[in-house]
Amino acid sequence: MVTGLARLKSVLDSLDDVLQLPQTQDSLQNDVVEKLLEDFLRFVDAYEVFHGVLLGLRQEVSSAQVAIRRKDNSKLGLYVKAHKKFANDVAKLVGTLTERSNEVVKPDDEIYIVVRDACRLTASISEAVFGGMSGSFGPGRRPIWAGLGLGIRKARKEEEGVGEFGKVVKGVESLLEFRKRKSNNNNNNDSNREEVKMGVLKGMQEMEECVGEMERESEKVFRSLISNRVSLLNILTHA
């Protein structure tokens, strides 16, 4: 996901360079520019929501780590609820870019083709990023704490981490369940609970790093999308 966002920014920066070329401004017709403005408004809205989800998620993960150390079960319960809300918000984003207006393109015009392909690539990468994030919130394909203490994978291996965010929240639920069954006379239970606690904390730390990196990259994409819209508006204004 992080790699996808970085590549998307490169695509958008290249597109912005193309949009500022004099030959591009002379070639693009008003109806095409207006359609592109609509598409980019949809992109901007989607990434504004996405960035908000990432920011909120990182803050909740940070608070949850404090709650674990302080044994504050009520705040951990709130984290589980917030996690599910973020999962729903990202799932909704996956379908926001599927509705696209009919393209108005001159197939024999190189400028039109370049702009069209860049927009298609923007939509495709965005859908993949949102879909990957949505999958990370899922329950995963293995038992949640089959390997205690492993945590989630690093951000640079995010493509291998399908369901990993979901595993963290499942770990929190397991920790809450342990605390409900707390028995002062059961040393094995105390040992297992501590092992789960350490595994959850490690997973949350890595999750916080991963989300923070995605947050930074999504902000860059958002700014590039705004820049592209400004270039399109300039074309329309000077047409």
Rank of each mutant, 00 (worst) to 15 (best):
S62C: 04
D117H: 04
L236K: 15
F50M: 10
G171M: 02
N187A: 11
R216C: 06
V172T: 07
F86S: 14
E38H: 09
L19K: 07
D72H: 06
L236R: 14
V169I: 12
R229E: 09
N189C: 00
R58V: 10
H238L: 13
N228E: 12
V169R: 14
K9F: 04
R156H: 15
D45W: 10
L36T: 04
L175N: 07
V53S: 12
I125H: 06
M204K: 15
D89G: 01
K106L: 12
V11N: 14
L176P: 06
N192V: 01
F165Q: 06
T98I: 09
E209T: 15
M1W: 03
V90W: 01
L236P: 03
A6Y: 11
K75I: 08
S10Q: 14
K154T: 11
I68S: 00
G163Y: 00
E208P: 00
S14M: 11
D109W: 05
A91Y: 01
N88L: 08
V94N: 07
V32M: 08
Q59K: 10
E213I: 13
S227T: 03
K92P: 02
G77C: 03
R193I: 06
V94T: 14
L150N: 07
Q29L: 09
V230A: 13
S126M: 03
E99M: 07
E213C: 03
A64I: 04
P143L: 05
G138I: 00
L8F: 01
A67M: 00
L78R: 10
R216M: 13
L36Y: 12
E103C: 00
E219L: 15
G138H: 05
L55W: 03
L19R: 07
K75Q: 15
L93D: 04
L121C: 03
G135I: 10
N186L: 09
E48L: 04
C119A: 06
L15M: 12
D26G: 03
G138F: 00
D39N: 14
P139N: 09
E164W: 02
A64N: 07
L36F: 07
G151N: 10
L19D: 03
K202G: 00
G135K: 14
K202M: 02
L175D: 07
S224T: 03
Y47W: 12
A123M: 02
L150P: 00
E177N: 13
E99S: 11
S224R: 04
G131L: 00
M207E: 00
L76F: 06
R229Q: 13
P139I: 03
R42I: 09
D17N: 07
D72S: 07
K35V: 02
L78K: 09
F43C: 08
E206A: 08
F165C: 08
R100C: 01
